[in-house]
């Protein structure tokens, strides 16, 4: 198809050009990502007071609990579903904000660092600690006591503590939805929560798999 036209030239991006490799920043350099997160956060002019968000989210969780008549499992699922819908829109916004600066991910560690240092910083203005389980290939994001905006100033009644209501489960959904937007299938679970009396809040991202690109019919 191409060769029929005499003066055809093709150029592609990505790996095949050596310049791209040379210029791409050193990904293992966590400091770079940290600076990038700060920079994107500072540049982002559209910031808003978190108070309304926190209160709205609280009353939403209350409505869900009332509606499902204290069925905590359903509440957790619903919050996750909401998160997925948000995440699949948010991922486009994330890339449209950082697309030119962000280096390519090479492995799960890079993914975890990008999530905690850039994405969380940009949207929620907090940086969870990133830990990586080498054997199980699990990305762990640990929130130190008060940095999670959603659960700030929240205290759960004992009833829901025993039933394990994951108050901020929407974050797990958002991560899962966002990753599915870049063709990564994953299981994101809220592993533990300080609101439930655990020593720390942790989100686990496990079983990250690639969704194969679709091929048009007849190819």
């Amino acid at each position: 198809m191409v060769s029929s036209v005499p003066d055809t030239s093709i150029s592609t991006t990505g790996s095949s050009s050596s310049a791209a490799i040379k210029n791409s920043p050193n990904y293992s350099n966590v400091v770079f990502l940290k600076q990038l997160g700060e920079q994107v956060f500072q540049q982002n002019m559209k910031k808003i007071n978190a108070e309304f968000l926190t209160i709205t989210y609280g009353s939403l969780v209350k409505v869900l609990i009332d509606h499902y008549k204290d069925d905590v499992e359903k509440c957790n699922q619903k919050l996750k579903e909401m998160g997925k819908n948000i995440g699949s829109r948010l991922i486009d916004d994330f890339y449209s904000k950082v697309t030119t600066q962000i280096p390519r991910c090479n492995n799960l560690k890079d993914l975890g660092n990008t999530l905690s240092l850039v994405a969380f910083k940009l949207y929620l203005n907090c940086v969870p600690k990133f830990l990586f389980d080498e054997e199980e290939k699990i990305i762990k994001l640990r929130f130190d006591n008060d940095i999670n905006i959603f659960s700030k100033f929240v205290e759960l009644p004992d009833e829901y503590k025993n039933k394990r209501l994951y108050y901020s489960n929407i974050i797990a959904g958002i991560i899962e939805g966002a990753l599915s937007g870049i063709a990564l299938k994953s299981d994101v679970i809220y592993f533990s929560d300080t609101l439930l009396g655990d020593p720390f809040s942790e989100i686990h991202i496990a079983n990250v798999k690639r969704i194969k690109d679709e091929v048009p019919m007849g190819q």
Binding site: N44, K46, K47, I48, E51, N125
Partner: peptide, 10 residues
């Protein structure tokens, strides 16, 4: 400093 979040996220 008031806690801020991204406007689009909110």
């Amino acid at each position: 400093q008031p806690l801020t979040v991204d406007y689009i996220f909110e």
